[in-house]
């Protein structure tokens, strides 16, 4: 198949709209064709740039939510009078005291569900955005000709390199006897705070590990280890000793989990 035909498939591949077989075929081609690989990277960058540019572009007025809630409750509002055939007219019976108490309880429960749902969704959206930004950093690192600032497989070289650059320290695992290999690390900034990005190799796949000071917006501590799958990448995040760890890679979830286990064990030492 010619490059022109393969390029028709790149969008579907980046949108996760291909079957596993189609994805494998495209990946094989991208591995051998630098022109199409560059095109795929450019399209991925445009896709990510679009998301960042369009997200939260327009913010509702502070009182809009309240106005809508009031209009929904106000029967005289013309909007409330819009007929909807799927919603049958219902004549309410005269309510007894027990009914009223029951309905009041149900209403309170409904309000609670709405609040909890809204909070959950809001936190979830914020977390998704945070993880998406870190995923973008991982992809950009892989595309860079200088992916790390300190290149070494020796943990005793990489860890000391961060001294004086970060307001905290962390432990790196001993990787002897494991399939993982330390590639190096670099200083990164997230939400105006410095953090460490470490790069690991696993059977020619690159895995990023971000170590940041814990802050709101990433996975809440109470969730413990959380896993995600986003745009074909597996991610795992957890909080330990005031630090937030995020592992991102295109390897299997089990491989990401294995590296996470090694880091968690090192963090407990």
């Amino acid at each position: 198949m010619s490059c022109e035909l393969w390029r028709d498939w790149i969008d579907a591949y980046l949108d996760d709209g291909c079957t596993p077989e189609e994805s494998a075929g495209i990946e094989d081609h991208l591995n051998t064709c630098t022109a199409c690989a560059a095109e795929a990277l450019a399209r991925l960058r445009l896709k990510n740039a679009t998301r960042i540019a369009a997200a939260d572009r327009f913010v509702p007025a502070p009182d809009l939510r309240l106005r809508i809630e009031q209009s929904i409750q106000n029967p005289r509002n013309p909007i409330s009078a819009i007929p909807f055939v799927a919603f049958p007219r219902f004549k309410f019976p005269v309510l007894t005291k027990q009914w009223k108490q029951g309905l009041a309880g149900a209403a309170a429960a409904l309000v609670l569900v709405v609040i909890v749902g809204s909070v959950w969704w809001s936190r979830s959206a914020g977390r998704q955005q945070a993880l998406a930004q870190l995923l973008d950093m991982h992809v950009a690192t892989l595309a860079s000709s200088n992916p790390v600032d300190v290149a070494s497989t020796d943990q005793h070289t990489v860890k000391p390199w961060f001294e004086g650059k970060l307001p905290y320290t962390f432990n790196l695992p001993v990787l002897d006897g494991t399939p993982f290999k330390l590639v190096g690390g670099k200083l990164m900034y997230y939400r105006n705070r410095p953090g460490a990005q470490l790069l690991f190799d696993l059977r020619k796949h690159q895995i990023s590990v971000f170590i940041l000071q814990d802050q709101p917006g990433l996975t809440p501590k109470s969730l413990g280890v959380a896993t995600e799958r986003q745009r074909g990448f597996n991610e795992e995040t957890w909080s330990q000793a005031g630090l937030r760890y995020i592992v991102i890679g295109d390897t299997s979830a089990a491989d990401v989990r294995a590296l996470g286990d090694l880091l968690r064990a090192a963090g407990r030492q």
Partner: peptide, 27 residues
């Protein structure tokens, strides 16, 4: 109201007008 901010953002992108977007989200 789930998805409130997200729906408003989309409504504004669609309508390109604040008042129309607000009415649209409300409806």
């Amino acid at each position: 109201m789930p998805h409130f901010a997200s729906l408003y953002n989309l409504a504004f992108w669609l309508t390109q007008d604040r008042a129309t977007a607000e009415d649209l989200v409300q409806e």
